[in-house]
Design a protein around this nucleic acid. Structure first.
Lengths: 247, 247
DNA sequence: GTGCATGCTTGATCCAGATCAAGGTCAAAC
DNA sequence: GTTTGACCTTGATCTGGATCAAGCATGCAC
């Protein structure tokens, strides 16, 4: 079968959930035009709920800046975070008209939204969008599986160290990297939200943060700003093997 | 933009990982021909390792019958299952040439395999395959998120009950449903593998199975055959709300 | 300023599930 | 039919993290 799509090198559509790694020469124009036509922005303050599980959801979106959390809650109030969306992450599921999880902004947040129905139609008519969305979803599934190892088998201390290293790495990916083993970043979550992420109580999170601080693995500047003098020392606390993770 | 693909009603390709929900009139023939040309079968016995994390993986596959498990292992031997593949589930990731997880057959298993490179090429040239694969991956992500709630927040008893209800439901989906609230099925996992699934020890799994048996929620016929006299009673033990789960 | 709320820390105690340790069951091998 | 080994169950004890309970720090409203 002949290749029906001629591809060009990387081309970005700002704020678009789908960063085209390659753009189809045939449908490029239509695709970008369509996305532009159905796109709009929404802003939320830290702590605001974006949508409750079960609510109608007439859009999908991409995080422009800030952080959003997906959480599940049991009847008796036990809560587990099941997704943490940082800039460029995708929110919502095509072909589903109701939210499956509670979504909250854990920092001030801007979303780039697309009305769901036109977005779906574009999905079914243009191949590259669903191919890119597939890659993104597979990455998210890998992250979920790493998270499952954390939840099922790691100690409280390892959970905290793992969480800090995840945030540090994802934060670094947004900024130009700085030299040396030292790293600094802001926590985008309260101690309670960290507990929901890690399957712990907020007291245990607080205690283990103090323990890592006392052991010199991290330094705290205020409650939220973290300094990691030696990133390798933090990684040693995560329980992951040195090269760590997905092949 | 005009719809470039004319679609017909459902059409199945036996053993194909992609159940076409609709088939493109233009590319249908090529697509099926291509899949057929690169497909072959592999069989494994219960307990056999299919591939180790980090190994070269030159195929993707669909489970025909039997059950396979994806597991992660920490250096000190702690293990967590992160995927459980039942018939029709997909194994492997396009565009990745090494396995990210250990894969083992937990029962006798048959895979329908596709050589990875031709499969990838087909992915990039035919839109429906990646659209279908996206749907499947999104379903798997939802399942992973349910699993995260289980690992992070459920009690041992709730974990066991949830696991049994998951297996019962997926088992029922393969067979024609029988009437009444009673359900029976075989466990496709040893107690140890259940422990790896649930983030418990095998002793705790065994104790909680006994407890559910003593409380009349389940009956055991041998170690592996489970009878659930009242499925609603089992669901009550899972900690999930009545209508349970994704919207 | 004072008052109040939100988020965080730390201490004391408790308990679910891990760990350590035996022993039981069953089927296949001899 | 007895030996072997894989798999499972049950008991006794231990412990990491939960729970209960104060207090502290910071920032905002007035």
């Amino acid at each position: 079968m002949s290749q029906r799509h001629i591809t060009f090198p990387q081309r970005e559509c700002a704020d678009c959930p789908i960063r085209h790694r390659a753009v189809c020469a045939r449908c490029e124009t239509d695709e970008l035009e369509q996305l532009e036509a159905i796109k709009y922005y929404r802003n939320y303050e830290a702590g605001q709920t974006i949508i409750w599980a079960g609510d109608k959801m007439d859009f999908v979106a991409s995080v422009v800046h800030g952080v959003a959390a997906l959480t599940q809650t049991m009847e008796d109030g036990r809560r587990q975070m099941v997704g943490l969306l940082l800039p460029s992450d995708f929110l919502g599921r095509p072909n589903r008209d109701r939210a499956a999880y509670d979504v909250t902004a854990t920092t001030d947040l801007q979303l780039c939204c697309f009305r769901r129905l036109p977005f779906q139609q574009m999905l079914s008519s243009t191949p590259h969008v669903s191919q890119r969305l597939l890659e993104m979803t597979l990455d998210e599934l890998d992250a979920a599986r790493e998270w499952m190892l954390l939840l099922g088998r790691k100690t409280a201390r390892e959970k905290i160290a793992s969480f800090l290293s995840i945030i540090a790495r994802r934060d670094a990916a947004q900024h130009t990297p700085r030299p040396g083993g030292a790293v600094a970043f802001d926590l985008p979550l309260t101690r309670e939200a960290m507990a929901d992420y890690l399957g712990l109580t907020l007291e245990t999170v607080s205690r283990q943060m103090s323990a890592l601080k006392n052991d010199g693995v991290i330094k705290l500047d205020g409650k939220r700003h973290i300094i990691v003098p030696d990133f390798a020392a933090l990684m040693d606390e995560t329980g992951d093997d040195a090269d760590g993770g997905v092949y």
